[in-house]
Amino acid sequence: MSMSNEVRVGAVLIAGIVLVVVGTIWLQGWRIGREDQLVTAWFREVGQVQRGNPVKLRGVHIGRIEEISLDAGGSGVAVRMSIGSDVRMPEDPVVLLSMESLFGDWQAEIHSRARFPLYDYAVSPEPDGIPGYSLPDMSRLTAVADRIAENLAVITDRVDIAFTDETALNIREAIDNIQRVTGQLTALVEAQEQTVRDVAVGLETTTETLQQAALSASRTFSLIETAIADGQLASIVGNVDRLTAQIDTLSSALVLVSRDMGGVTESADSAFASLHAIVSALDRGEGTLGLLLQDTALYRDLALTSSLVQDLIRDFQRNPRRYINLRVF
């Protein structure tokens, strides 16, 4: 075998190997010599994302997805991405997985959380991991649209059943009624407008009065404050204090008097007992006074006697010489 044949075979072999290696690297989108940083984002699920899908920041292709693996605990999916070392991540970054087009190709987009704050991002178990969220893919959107279409069909059927010619007439009448009621309400509102205006004026006046009262109260409080500051209140308090002491003295005196009232009461009680005995005796008709009180004959005699005496006195006054015969010498 000639040397040229060996060279030819060797060259073809080497070229074939180089072609396979370089072609694979090129088709994967790797750039030799570029330093990448590896970033891990966490998701609850990753939709149709595959290794090699692009990573974008503000729409610019900055890297690719290197690895997709289930979390050991099974609670999430870790997506490892290689991005250029010169790429600066946004503040509080999050990763959104979404369809790049309608034909099944997906992408990972890095955003600031502030741009899409409402998504339920997966929590990263690693301190330097990035929270991520996977947007629904076409099949899920289609499923939701299918459900909505079914619901619309049901609603349409029900509307078909419910919306007869009679219903349409009723609705038209209802609209007419609403128009009439609206007109009446408008008239009522116009009528009440002056009343409301008067109430507003009254309220304004009241407010002014309240404002004046507040000013008076403010002045009063300031006077009180001034009085407190000038010591007048202290003087009043001193007077009240003295008055209280005098009342206290008076109370002591009253206590003493009330103590003496015991003896007085006893004396009065004894006097009342004696009076009671006298009254009882009189009531029984004992003694002269009792007999006088109880015996009506004696009363009549006494009244007669009194009358006679009066007659005698009158006669004596008219005719004193009858009874008095005064002689001097």
Binding site: V20, G23, T24, L27, Q28, G52, D105
Partner: peptide
């Protein structure tokens, strides 16, 4: 398009 769904296994499979 070439890179869109390319995975290195495609080359391995071919070889």
């Amino acid at each position: 398009g070439l890179r869109l769904f390319f995975v290195p296994f495609d080359v391995t499979y071919s070889l």
